[in-house]
Design a protein around this nucleic acid. Structure first.
Lengths: 186, 186
DNA sequence: TTTTATATACCGAACGTTTGGTAAAATTGT
DNA sequence: ACAATTTTACCAAACGTTCGGTATATAAAA
């Protein structure tokens, strides 16, 4: 069998970037083809169900990334709490490109096929919540209060990303990252 | 002059709802025509520049609504601070349908023609910020700190709306409304 | 080792549909 | 009559998608 012209990881990265910037309906197959270096028909060879499958694939990749770089890091009990949090915040900074990228969980939550992505998106947030709740719990919060604080972290992240984007000012996101430890401390 | 088949306010409401739910690229002219009860060509008679103009028109209407129902209310110095805030929070609850609607400022900030809406969107947030900053200032915050707190309110609103939407749980938004007074108090 | 067959990966070209958009006629109220 | 509004009918372009076929690598058969 012939070699793959474009390695999947590169294609995934490009597709991820497009769906982040332009959303689901705003990203056309022509854009996906140009960005990945694959022709439209080749994209259909890799993703027989079409654009929906491409977006869902990217979403599941993001879920995996969140699991290993954030959830698992935050719940890794062998590591000191402070260290875990620092690593997770670095991961967030990387995921969102310092606040200048949109969140794919948000951009794919709106549009024609949004229902198709609902569960995958919700599952990503649940990963984040169990992760941050572990830190809050380690800091002395009760189980339900810890989860509450974890959800506030999600709210802060999403909100700051929205404002960083529309106001073209990453200060919102940077300040959010600084404030997250306070939200998880008693 | 002949009667307009559909009064502008109704048409605006329907277009607003569509752009909120499906974003810019996810809202087609056919959807807009069906929702308003006007044919595509009739929409073009009212908005000669097409979909962009429709969305911008809705956006400017929203800006005006925010100005009168939130900004002006929050800065109305004849009224006691607490009363102003209560009224503004009621307006927010109405604007976002208790947390079950998306924010048009966010949904129009992503997509093909997003640059076309940038300024109008930013201007809406600035209105919100001056409004909430007035409350924070009245509560004893310095000018710059007041503005900072006002921006945190925006972040909280946007974040809670994102999570209310994707998790299908308006609790996020309702809790946000409750917490806003605390963000603006010393 | 060479040949043959098989499976994988890709692509040019076209598909039918939907898109945003337009010209001209018909309708309506003054 | 007139001017504003709506509508029918239409269009080119773009959309997501499919198809026929080619090239490449592996595996089996000779």
């Amino acid at each position: 069998m012939p070699l793959q012209k474009v390695d999947p990881e590169t294609a995934d990265r490009e597709m991820f970037a497009l769906f982040c910037s332009y959303g689901y309906d705003g990203t056309s197959l022509e854009m996906l083809a140009n960005a990945t270096g694959l022709k439209k028909a080749s994209l259909y060879h890799r993703f027989p169900e079409g654009k929906k499958e491409m977006a869902l694939h990217v979403l599941k990749g993001t879920r995996q990334w969140i699991k290993t770089h954030i959830r698992d890091v935050l719940t890794h009990e062998e590591q000191p709490v402070k260290k875990r949090l620092t690593l997770a915040l670095q991961a967030l900074d990387q995921l969102y490109n310092g606040g200048s990228s949109n969140c794919i969980l948000r951009t794919l939550s709106i549009g024609t096929d949004a229902p198709y992505f609902r569960d995958a998106i919700a599952s990503c947030f649940e990963l984040l919540h169990t992760g941050f709740a572990a830190i809050a719990a380690a800091n002395g919060f009760s189980g339900t209060r810890a989860l509450q604080q974890a959800k506030e972290v999600s709210v802060a992240i999403q909100g700051s990303l929205v404002l960083s984007n529309v106001m073209n000012d990453t200060t919102y996101f940077k300040k959010c990252l600084e404030d997250i430890p306070l939200l998880l401390k008693k």
